[in-house]
Every structure is written in structure tokens, then in C-alpha cells.
Amino acid sequence: MAPVRFYQVGSFAVGNRLVDRSERTVQSDAGRSNSLTSGHRACQGCGEALGARYALDAAMRATGGRLVAVNATGCLEVFSTPYPETSWQIAWLHSLFANAPAVATGVAAALRVKGRSDIRVVSQAGDGGAVDIGFGCLSGMFERNDDVLFICYDNEAYMNTGVQRSGATPPAARTATTEAVGPHPGNVFGQGKNLPEIAMAHRIPYVATATVADLHDLEDKVSRAMAVHGSRYLHILVPCPLGWGSASSDTVRVARLATQTGLFPVFEAERGRVVRVTPIRRLAPVEDYLRIQGRFRHLFDPEGAVAQPGVVAALQSMADATIARYGLLAGAEAEPRQGTGTGTEAAS
């Protein structure tokens, strides 16, 4: 059960003055590190930029600024470091697309040899860099339990190269390599990998998921991850307005719907066992989530009616299965919270 927290009405906005100082988000602190500072080239409303900024600042706070970051190739790397500019105000290294976990292993090994136990290592990649091409290195890092927090910013496709399908692309989603044509438009059903569960199968100390819809929760998870040693994995859902065909102003809303429909479970696991789930507070039908994204437009006709009821139903049953699997509805109704702002209207 998630700890009770107070939220501002209508949003999960940062800097909430109702809560104790120590409970406030990192971003409300004037001394925040601005790890990923302004001026980068991400698209407007980029969930990855938002997630990375919060995650890294939280990691900086958790480590007292003793942090180095390794980055895989991908949007985050490209939009943050067009030479000679950089948006990183932390020690940062980009090597390749597939090797961010292994590079981080090397950094951690070097720090151990040098006796620099004060410095911690974060490694980060997009879903492609984690789920697909970097999977071997990531699994190796997990299996050796190297002292690295690995963050996957999951925008469910290869965005940097123009929105091609990855192993994290959901069924029915249109990408540049799963076009909305033919008898089964969009990505096929029955494929794809669930990396958080695969990470759990490695029995590493800590695995968690988060989204940019609940940044406070995201920060908490980073802090918790940094309090532990060994391999830790944080999977953050980061909507991509360009690839998802959603409005730039809807990034948080889309992410929230992903959790409220049950499509994206938010949970924490320790040593392979789920120890906490964030319950869905107001269940939303999958259709609400699909409708506001261009990548699912082919499921609806121009008038807005469902054109592919079978597909929508199949996605709904995926969500239902996830809800059941993680117990996402347990107690949700029983525990109304003060001033919660949820649902699709929240971000309007």
C-alpha cells in the first residue's frame, strides 16, 4: 500500500506547501542541482526530459551531489549534448547505444578501486537502449549485481531515429515500422518484453516503475534506490508527444491515464518480490487513454466512434489482466484522499 500523501487540487504539482519541507519535491528546493538544465533541444512536452530532470536531481539530492551519470545513445543524449553545448551540470559520459550498463559497471569498478565509495553511479537509456539493444549488457550488470542504478526512460519506441517499434512498443500502436495499414494496423499483439519483470527475475535488490504523472513518487523511488547498493532498476514511463501523437500539453495527462487504465502498473519490488503497488485511484477505461494519442488514431473513425472494437477490447483486457496481476484496484475505493486531483480532467 502506498503511503498517504497530500496533493494539490487538480495536479500533482511540485512544491506543495502543505507538506513538510522534507517531504517536498526536490524541485521545490532552490538548491536543486538542475542536473539537466534548460536550453536542451527536446521537443515541447517531452516526457523524457521531464523524467530525466526529476530523476537526476533526486539522485543528486540522495547522494549529496556525489554522482556520475552514464547515458546511452538516444533522444536524451542527443537533445542534451549537441557539441559544443551541454545541458548536463553533472559529470556525464555517453559512450554507445548498447553499452550504458557495462560502462557504468566500469565506472563503479573504478570508483571501488579508487576507494571513492562516496560517489554513486547512475546509468540511463531509452527503452530501445534497455529493452532491446542494451539488454545483454543490462542483464549482465543485473546478474553481477554491480552497484549501479539503471534508469530506463520508456517512451515505447525508438524516438531518436524517428519512432520505430521497439520491444516496449504496445500492441496496436502505430510506429514508423508498424504502420497503421493492413488487416491488423499498428504493432502486433503477443510480442514485446516486460523489462521490470525481467529485472525482477534477476533478484536484484530493487526494481521500481514510475511515470512523469507522479513526479513526487518518481523522486521517492530514486531516493529509495540510492539508499541501497547493488543493481537497481527504475523504469519510468515518459510519453513522447512526437512519437505518440499527443499534445505537448498532455504529457502528464497521458502518463496518468496509462496508470489509471491499468496499462502501466506502478510498483516497487525487492529481490524479485513486489512489495508495494500504487493503487489506481480512479479507474479509467483504456479508450480514454487511446483517444488522445495519434498512434492509436486508426482504432477510431473520423467521427470518433470506435472503428476497431476488437482491438480496443483486447487492449482493455490487457489492462484488466495487469490490474489483476498487481492488485492495482485493491483498496482504491476504500481510501479517498484529501484534495486528490486525478482523472483526465486533472491536467486540463
Binding site: V103, G106, A109, A110, C137
Partner: peptide, 14 residues
């Protein structure tokens, strides 16, 4: 591939 990558990271950290 990982071995060389580990070496890269180690070298980058001094």
C-alpha cells in the same frame, strides 16, 4: 562488447 565497455567506463573514472 561489454568487456570493452567496462574498460571504457573504468578508464573514464580514472
Amino acid at each position: 562488447f561489454a568487456a570493452m565497455s567496462v574498460a571504457i567506463g573504468a578508464s573514464a573514472a580514472g
